[in-house]
């Protein structure tokens, strides 16, 4: 009697699980179809390899998405796709968006991502984008959240000059690059760690040079950014 009960509950559980899995596989497929029909690929690279020359970088219309599943947090992505906000104050390639002045350059017009999808579509596109992984990235690297905020701030704002290019607050920091004041909502900390160790692995011509730091310091920076929400 007892074993029958267990067997039945196991079968029910297995059914439940398989429906769940096939549902998300269906979402993934629908998501890919939406990406194709909305022509996300007309602006974004949906497949590697990344650009290898400056000439190609200057033709770039939008950030690469072929490792989106490693880079982003699911909840953020789903929200963003429905109502994109500006992440890069001077656009995807700042050089294409500056008004060159005699004394000072100014940022010209910048538009957010053109994604315009319903909540259901955003869910399906997210399921699909989350399957696009960077195969060499280690997961489970940043596990705990404890770190010295004071030390991290010195690294970010002084020793490594990160704030010269990035905003860690809405109103302070450089503007040629993505804002990081909501990095904790947006980015997967394991990806941040992997990216910081070698930005050129993801984008050989990106205008963020690699800093030579210990894994410990890279981890500290990744945890600091994960705390910005």
């Amino acid at each position: 009697m007892k074993s029958l009960k267990i067997l039945i509950s196991l079968i029910v559980f297995a059914l439940f699980l398989s429906v769940g899995i096939s549902n998300s596989i269906a979402d993934e497929k629908d998501g890919k179809a939406i990406v194709d029909s909305k022509k996300c690929g007309s602006c974004h690279k949906m497949q590697g390899p990344p650009d290898k020359t400056i000439a190609d970088v200057l033709k770039r219309k939008a950030p690469d998405l072929f490792y989106a599943g490693s880079k982003f947090k699911t909840e953020w992505l789903e929200k963003f796709l429905q109502k994109p906000t500006i992440i890069r104050p001077a656009g995807t390639v700042y050089l294409n968006n500056i008004k060159m002045g005699d004394k000072k350059d100014e940022i010209g017009d910048v538009k957010p991502c053109a994604s315009n999808v319903s909540a259901k579509e955003a869910h399906e596109v997210t399921e699909y984008l989350m399957t696009l992984k960077e195969p060499t990235m280690k997961t489970g690297v940043i596990v705990d959240e404890s770190f010295s905020k004071a030390k991290a701030k010195v690294l970010f704002g002084q020793k490594e000059g990160c704030s010269g290019c990035h905003r860690d607050k809405a109103d302070s920091g450089g503007t040629s690059c993505p804002t990081l004041y909501n990095a904790g909502e947006r980015l997967n900390p394991d990806w941040v760690f992997d990216f910081l160790k070698n930005p050129q692995k993801y984008d050989p011509k990106i205008w963020m040079p690699r800093r030579e730091l210990s894994d410990e310091d890279f981890m500290l920076l990744a945890k600091f950014l994960a705390s910005l929400k």
Binding site: G101, D105, G174, S176
Partner: peptide, 16 residues
Amino acid sequence: QCHGSKGSGGGINAAA
């Protein structure tokens, strides 16, 4: 981005 398009130090990041 920092040294500016004229090279004279007026890049968009200079203020930061």
